[in-house]
Amino acid sequence: MMRSWAMWPLLVLLFWPLHPSPRKPVPAPLPPPPTVQEGARLYHRACLSCHGPRGNGEAFVLMPNGQAAPRLDQLQGTAKTVPHLMQVIGEGRGLMPAWRTVMTPREIQSLALYVASLNPASPAWHGWAGHPRHSTPASFR
């Protein structure tokens, strides 16, 4: 009898590691960051026909008014910054649709990165160096 009582602490020690410990909350995985590669893929699907394969305005189709969409490889000043491009792509401008109706904010960022890259002297963008939201235009938050 005495010996079986002595077994209990031993058993507890033996199985303690298997005792379910209170789970730490697992943080939701961060979505993959936007990339120029994804932007290029989206450009091919959404922009190429009107802005041309190199973004230089050599469009494959003209708009219903017979005009070509503007070239994207000679943007000046803030026009070629990623936040500005995101704003234009998301909200649309002129005959260009508001792509935010069918693209996610990350896709729009990728697309903006790609369009910015078409401009040789486009300023470096550090939106993902800190918190991604810090450089997301207000309308996409």
Binding site: S49, C50, P53, V102
Partner: peptide, 10 residues
């Protein structure tokens, strides 16, 4: 044919 806008994005 996407280059000629012969498609629907979604």
């Amino acid at each position: 044919f996407i280059p000629w806008n012969w498609y629907t994005y979604n």
